[in-house]
Each structure stands twice: as C-alpha cells, then as structure tokens.
Design a protein around this nucleic acid. Structure first.
Lengths: 245, 245
DNA sequence: TACCTCTTAATGTCATGACAAATCGTTGAC
DNA sequence: GTCAACGATTTGTCATGACATTAAGAGGTA
C-alpha cells in the first residue's frame, strides 16, 4: 500500500476527478506508485483528498479504462504490472511521429478537387461523382520515405493549403477548424507494393506494405475523411494496448 | 426523439444499468432507434424506467464507450450514424471466425515444453531457458490455410492437449480454466513470407504476410501468453473501431 | 492437518439532491 | 435586417448515504 501526495484545487476549472486521475497517473509513471502495489481504498482516498467517493471512483475508473489500474472487488485497486503502450487513438501519423520525436516531414503530392470515385463516395456517404478534396502526401522521417497517404474529404469541411499540410498533420488542422472527430472505422492489412508506390517509397516493387484504410466521423455522424494509407513495413508497425473491461 | 419500450427487473441479479444498456442496444440494432435520432433526456428516461439519473447515465456511458451513442452537453444523446464494427477485443482468432460463421479448423503442428528463447522469455517475464509451453498451430477456414499461430505460455497456467486445441480457441480454454485476461500489448506489421511459411500457408515465398505479436496479462499482471501470428494478407485483415472519449 | 464458517474489508450498485456549463432558439434592441 | 442578450434545455460534475457482493484471512472443529 502506497500513499502518494495528492491535492486538488477546487477553484480550478479542471474537474476534480480529472485532477485526481492526473496525479495518480503521474505517480505511476514517476514510479512513486510501483507496479503491483495496492492503492488505499476508495474511502480513505476520498477522505484524504477531501472528495466524495463517487468522484474518487470516477478518477480510478478513468485510469482503469486507460489500462493503468486494475480493480478487484473484495481486494482493492492495484497498479498494473504490464507496461502499457499508448493505444491507437484518433490521432494522425504526424502527431504520433512528433510525439516519438522522429522529426516528420511531409511532401504534398496532390491537392485538388475531383469527382469522387465509387469507393471514396461510398465511404464518405455522398453520391459518386460529387466533388471532393483529394489529397496525396508522402510522409518522411529523417529524410527516409515512410508512408504514402491518400485522403478524401468533403469540400466544405476545411480549407487546405499545401503549405499548411507540410507543417501540420491533417487531424491537427481539422481540430483547429473546430471539427470533432469521434468515431473511426479502420482496417489494417498488407499487400505488395506497386511499381509507382515502390518508386515513391524508395523500395522495390513487390515488397510487403502495411495498409490502413480509415473512415472518420465527427460528432454529428458525418463522414469527414476517407483515408487510404500504405506504410513501408520495414519501417513502421501499429502498436496498441487492449484493455478488457 | 424516439421512445422504445423499456422495463427493468429489480429482482434480477443483472445490474439495472446493464439491463437498460442492453435494451437500448437491442433497440438500436433492431432499428427501433434509428441512427441520428435523439434519445429522451436523462431525467425523463430515469422517470420512465423508475431509475435514478446516475443509473441511467451509467447505462448511456456504457453505450457511448461502445461507440453506439454520442452525447453532447446542451444538446442531448444521439444514436451514431456510422456503422460500428466490432473492435478488436481480447478474443482469439478462433472466436472471431466462429462469430462470423466461417467454420474454422485448427491443426496442431507442435505442442511441447521447451526452454524459452530470448524473445519469449523477455515477453513472458521469465529467465531465458525457463521451460515454457510452445504451441504452433495452423488455422484454416473452408479448408484454406489462413494463419500460422505460434504461442508461448508458462507451464503452470493450463493443461493443454492437442485434441482440445483442435476444437476450441486458446482463449476459450484459458477462460474456462479461470484465467482472466485483462491487458494485452499488440503490434501489427507486415513482412514477406519465408519458404517454410509459404509452404504451410499454400502461398509462394515472398508474398506479403500480416503479422501480429501479442503479450497478454491476467488481472494479477502476470504474463500469460506470448503470441506470434502470421496471416495470409490475401485472406485476412484487422478491423477496428476507434471511439474518441 | 484439513476443512468449514464467520468476520472483515474492499469494490459494486443504486438513490437523491444540487449546482455548473454548454448549446440552441427566441426575443429584443439597434 | 442583423446582432446581441437572455432563457430554456440538457448533459457534466459533485456530495451524501445506503446496501449488496465478493474475496481473503482468522479461527474453530473434526
């Protein structure tokens, strides 16, 4: 049983349960709360922080969902042993690379409005032939090609410029525009590189590529983006953590 | 605004919030609640079911986490428009295939106890050379090879027999033994098939394969399984739904 | 020793009440 | 006609209190 220092600021606009969750998480990553150790029980925790039990439970539940804590009835709450990797989230590859300090660079190959093909139209929920923004980018890290990104977007979502796309991730731009991505369906597969892809990615024709198609929806349920990405399998893979509830 | 019939049984051992969540989910999949439609507000819902608001909120939150509903403050709760695919869960490929009615078959290629190699030992958290169960299986659907599954498990977890493994998924067997899988770290990538893999999978050397490695932990944080799977990319891909909270 | 039972401790579920914050439509002023 | 302010609606947050359920350990008994 370990007892990290915990304080909450009731004048802060940040919800109390979130403040508590943040402090617990910080204590875990800092090593103050060691893997396998038990937390105080909820009542004690609540008393010590001057919070009610539901608030404490909400904070703990937040970390359970994140995969950092495990609760067992009749036993208590423990810090998980396994190292939790960041799960796949609704972030762009660009954000991911920035987070892992791999200095991404983006080259815009195409940015145009064109009639939607059958697949893009179906995934965006518009009639085939509807004008949509078509975007093709090459993503590089450390001057090495990493992925070829093809995106289709409805025309009226956001104003995109090649300059902006070269210095920001697409999702970052969307968020800044006020678009709230909520749900995305993804499919991850693999296939051999075509000649064109191989040339762009500095690989040879036929090498295995990791593919990802994604359709993302905003909080109104409207399709915002249909993406088809191919990654050099030799330089990229998807990592995710599953938490059973 | 739609009002499906809702009743809860207070004598049932099933939690009330869960009963409500199940009924709402059933109404959604049955089409009684159509995508985009708004639910009644929480107070009304609570009154109509004879429940308190926190209980109703818990039910709704459950479905929000599942990606079936979207809540917006000041607006209300809506059924999501996008069709939600089942996310990757802590289930085995076998369960997945059964669920999609693809009549899986399993051929056990190897089931033996052997000293752990460096990689398996590291992932299972045991010293290299520790005896572990090594399991290699070929998974087929409709008599076509689909995947080559290699698993390593600590020896004292479960008693495995080839017969049992040919008629049940590994995770099913683990669950029946009382093992509670809680957290798993997965990596999904791609590479070219080796000659041996190609032979087993009825493919040609060098074709792209989808790879997945997974380390699964139980609720005590103990590593239960280290898996290295390769899938025929021509016949399999991973589908997942992301929900932003 | 082995097994059963009781006690204890912890999380799980549920109710009631209150106020805060965000959204949207309406109303009013200019 | 346009824009700003207001109010109604709805979800978000938090407190208090109660009882149920589960798990583990203590202790007694055969």
């Amino acid at each position: 049983m370990q007892r990290p220092a915990l304080t909450v600021d009731r004048n802060s606009p940040v919800p109390l349960y979130f403040q508590l969750a943040e402090q617990l998480e910080a204590a875990i990553v800092a090593g103050t709360l060691t893997p396998g150790s038990r937390l105080e029980n909820e009542i004690e925790l609540a008393d010590r922080c001057g919070l009610s039990r539901p608030t404490v439970r909400q904070a703990i539940q937040h970390l359970v969902d994140k995969g950092l804590l495990v609760r067992k009835r009749g036993v208590g709450t423990q810090v998980v042993q396994a190292q939790v990797k960041r799960p796949i989230e609704l972030t762009s590859l660009y954000d991911d690379l920035v987070a892992s300090q791999r200095s991404p660079r983006t080259k815009v190959l195409e940015l145009a409005t064109a009639p939607a093909g059958d697949e893009a139209a179906k995934n965006l929920g518009v009639p085939p032939g509807t004008p949509v923004i078509r975007l093709r980018r090459l993503r590089l890290t450390d001057s090495e090609p990493l992925a070829l990104l093809t995106n289709h977007l409805p025309v009226d979502i956001v104003d995109l410029t090649a300059e902006r796309l070269e210095s920001n991730g697409l999702y970052e731009i969307l968020r800044a525009t006020g678009v709230n991505l909520r749900i995305a369906n993804q499919t991850i597969g693999a296939r051999a590189a075509t000649t064109a892809e191989a040339t762009l990615l500095d690989e040879r024709r036929g090498v295995p590529l990791l593919t990802m198609t994604r359709t993302a929806f905003d909080d109104n349920g409207r399709a915002i983006e249909f993406a088809t990405h191919v990654y050099r399998a030799s330089r990229y893979s998807f990592t995710l953590t599953l938490v059973e509830r």
